[in-house]
Design a protein around this nucleic acid. Sequence first.
DNA 1: GCCTTACGTAACAGTTTGTAACACGGCAGC
DNA 2: GCTGCCGTGTTACAAACTGTTACGTAAGGC
Lengths: 235, 235
Amino acid sequence: MSLHRLLLVEDDTDMATMLAAYLQRQGLYVTLANSRASALAALKAGRVDLILLDVSLGDDDGVALCAEIRAAQDVPIIMVSALSADHQRMAGYEVGADDYIAKPFNPDLLLARIRAVLRRAGRAPSLSHRRRDGALTFQGWRYDARRDEVTAPGGWQVSLSSRETKLLRVFLANPLIPLTREEIAAALDDDEAAEGRAIDVLVGRLRNKTDPALIRTERGTGYVLTAEVTADEPA
Amino acid sequence: MSLHRLLLVEDDTDMATMLAAYLQRQGLYVTLANSRASALAALKAGRVDLILLDVSLGDDDGVALCAEIRAAQDVPIIMVSALSADHQRMAGYEVGADDYIAKPFNPDLLLARIRAVLRRAGRAPSLSHRRRDGALTFQGWRYDARRDEVTAPGGWQVSLSSRETKLLRVFLANPLIPLTREEIAAALDDDEAAEGRAIDVLVGRLRNKTDPALIRTERGTGYVLTAEVTADEPA
DNA sequence: GCCTTACGTAACAGTTTGTAACACGGCAGC
DNA sequence: GCTGCCGTGTTACAAACTGTTACGTAAGGC
């Protein structure tokens, strides 16, 4: 029920087909383009929320195309490259890519990046629209939003403090997406201010009560929920 | 089944649909309007407790519309803007918006603002708006307003003191909305004054006689009824 | 390897909340 | 009036919650 339209610019047909199928299954509306010309045509044809742009585009140059698109309109762009060389990465950033991912990539990671970019662009339907309904399952754990109850894989019930619960909800709303301390604090407090090590300690406490492996540290950045989250039907 | 009626004035269909879905799940009754004309029509058509008004409204101007509505009637308004520029923000306030939120926003944050505005505006729908004679059902429990009787999920009858009953009614009138001790006291006493721990103790006693999970503590704030409330037809 | 920085976390302190126990007052019955 | 009972607020203390600090350790950069 996501309304995001994604334009996939990729000249390798096999890769494009596979990726498109995957992304469509994830709820994205995907348009394919295999060249600079067709990409620009697709852009002109309709609304696009995000562009996934391969750096190597046969005769065309992805980096140049990125800059070209950026100059014309404000659409978030994620660059995809077969080479993870840093200069390429930098080249991508300089022309205005919002993110960069190297082939071969983990599809889930790609999806996470896509969500993150869309979110930053303010067009993301977050998980929140299902949050109050059923329960969420992740890595064997279960969170019943209605009752604020957390159940461990074994069936044990875990009691979290209200702050810990809020934190868990923040992570569940953004699975696989790295969150900075600022973002977490903002989401927790409904307003302003992140200081000190409060978030670290809070994360530590949540880790202890659940599974330490659930939340991974992104050194220098923040924290990520490492599990995929699926919504159960409301019983 | 909250009785808050929210008018969402937004011309971006996707955004409107998404937001409406989200807000409806949060227990608000949402009416959509995509233009100045339809907004005014909706206002004329029925009671509205709160207006969520997008600043950018295609041909129409949200700020002007805000002022217009304000001049005509006293409905709380939250302005939504894609630009967080301060002058716009101020412009919104000056014409009488009760709050302001910038896109992209955290849905939970929006919800918190909505609740805050509703609370401030004292529009918490009172029991009087309901069929006074019917019974209310919540989380398996039942409250018969006519007889002041409370029935547990199992069918057992629970006897509450008069003060406890009043407290229960206050919560039932404001399901899912956090209430401060002051608000509760005001609603209980018909006249002001909240001091000491009276409310805490009262809540504790109500919890004991019903289901402790029904009323959750919002640390630093107050208490919330965690159940949705539905009105039964009078038997 | 060493050095710097970031992170994990135990211990602590300040608040807030839960609740048992008590005190007070009205009221019915004697 | 006296007495016991019930409902209610007050008090006091324990427990829970949460941010801060300090220090040890891990992770990278060089």
